[in-house]
């Protein structure tokens, strides 16, 4: 058995599909590719796939990751070529790498994620944006009502926000953030935007922003985050 890590982009229209359906789309594409995929056992065999971290519906991903297992040794270039031909619109391969079989599970490696959020806010000035950014980063806690299937619950977003940058060009606002992700918890980009809007008193809604996950990170030595691919 051989293990390969695929880096892929998830853009429109595929970015409007949720994680479970994304898994389904990859399973279908792998079957179409006729690559020698390793299947799970049981009554309902499925291609063995391990994704790094689910992407919220509507968020683009530039470097999403999934591990697949093949029964024969193939060159990454060949895998890329075969799979690229059968992916649906909006999914594209960025790279394929062989990974040691015994390497830790992909999902367990994820510790951080970088997001970009772009939107328009009427009348915003670079100074206001910068003040808001600082207010967020200097706060000791950032309580937020997170809505879940079991109702809303209050969470503190502050420990999960590692970096935040804001750029303003006219009414165009770009937020670049590095946040906690993976098994220790996730901060969602629209939560940071909601916080930004509220803290700065800007009129706008998080739904009006365009979101993109630009990279996933693993924990390196000394709490430092290193890119996963």
């Amino acid at each position: 058995m051989y293990r390969y890590r695929l880096a892929f982009r998830k853009e429109s229209p595929a970015c409007w599909v949720g994680h479970l359906d994304l898994v389904r789309l990859f399973e279908q594409a792998l079957r179409r590719s006729a690559l020698p995929v390793v299947y799970s056992g049981g009554f309902n065999p499925r291609p063995r796939l391990v994704f790094a971290a689910p992407l919220p519906v509507g968020v683009r991903g530039l470097r999403e990751l999934v591990d697949v297992y093949l029964s024969s040794l193939l060159s990454p270039a060949l895998i890329q070529e075969r799979l690229a031909a059968v992916l649906p619109q909006g999914l594209a391969l960025v790279g394929v790498r062989r990974v040691p079989l015994e390497a830790p599970a992909l999902a367990s490696l994820v510790a951080g994620a970088a997001y970009r959020a772009e939107g328009e806010l009427a009348g915003i000035t670079p100074r206001e944006a910068e003040t808001t950014r600082q207010a967020i980063l200097e706060a000791s806690s950032l309580p937020y009502q997170r809505r879940g299937p079991k109702g809303a619950k209050e969470v503190d977003l502050r420990p999960g926000i590692r970096q935040l940058q804001v750029e303003v060009k006219g009414e165009q606002v770009v937020l670049e953030m590095l946040v906690r992700a993976g098994q220790e918890g996730n901060v969602r980009p629209e939560e940071v935007v909601a916080l930004f809007l509220k803290t700065g008193g800007f009129a706008g809604e998080p739904e009006d922003f365009y979101y993109c996950r630009t990279a996933l990170f693993a924990k390196g030595p000394g709490e430092k985050l290193i890119p996963l691919f």
Binding site: S12, P13, A14, W16, V17, G18, D21, L25, Q28, A29, V57, G58, V86, P88, Q89, G90, E207, D208, Y210
Partner: peptide, 23 residues
Amino acid sequence: MPALEKLLPRVSKPARYVGGEYN
């Protein structure tokens, strides 16, 4: 699509409306 992109974050199951599926 831009007009549609503004609607999609506000509805349940947005993939119902986007098209572009395989085949």
